[in-house]
Write a protein that binds this DNA or RNA. Structure first.
Length: 178
DNA sequence: CCCTGATTCGC
DNA sequence: GCGAATCAGG
């Protein structure tokens, strides 16, 4: 009954996966009796494993945050300090993303935390979400929830040839994610 | 027990 | 190639 992995569905899978949706969420979104195992299997076959956003349910054990006195300020990779899973320390916060000059460096600009990330800031995750140095890109989001650069990565076209399947339903279901 | 992705392996 | 079963983890 299910259409199998048409190009449309594969494209949707890629998009949602790179967007950080969990396998089960993607499976549900795709419908058609697709299980999360199927999604994961396909993801691996596509070589998409290991994305930026490991994703977690809402279950993340977020401590309401108990700000400690002194913030050691370890920007990146504490040497061997025991990682404490606490909400972000009172961060100085976020210089407004430069309107231009996207910084040539690979993934430096993770300047927004989950607490400071605004509605129109790029939500591209940077770093390990389970560590305190995790952040988001934070530049101006123009394409969907991402800035121009990251939208390019996230929304790779991948659609070649004639897309002829009845993708309307799927496309509609995806539209709300954008 | 809920969830996550990773891997295996018969189909 | 596919995905259920299984594994390993949070």
């Amino acid at each position: 009954m299910n259409p199998g992995w048409t190009e449309d569905r594969v494209g949707a899978l890629k998009k949602l996966w790179l967007e950080g949706q969990s396998a089960s969420q993607i499976a549900k979104a795709l419908g058609g009796g697709v299980t999360r195992n199927a999604v994961i299997g396909k993801v691996h076959r596509l070589g998409l494993s290991g994305r930026a956003a490991p994703s977690q349910p809402a279950r993340t054990t977020f401590r309401p945050a108990r700000p400690r006195a002194a913030a050691p300020a370890a920007p990146v990779q504490a040497p061997s300090a025991p990682r404490r899973l606490e909400a972000a320390a009172p961060r100085p916060v976020v210089a407004a993303p430069a309107p231009q000059a996207p910084s040539p460096a690979p993934e430096l600009p993770g300047t927004a935390t989950v607490l400071t990330l605004g509605a129109h800031m790029c939500k591209w995750p940077i770093g390990d979400p389970s560590t305190r140095d995790f952040s988001f890109c934070g530049r101006r989001a123009s394409e969907g929830v991402y800035c121009v650069e990251h939208a390019r990565v996230a929304y790779q076209p991948q659609v070649r040839k004639g897309a002829k399947d009845g993708a309307s339903e799927l496309a509609r279901s995806l539209r709300r994610y954008i």
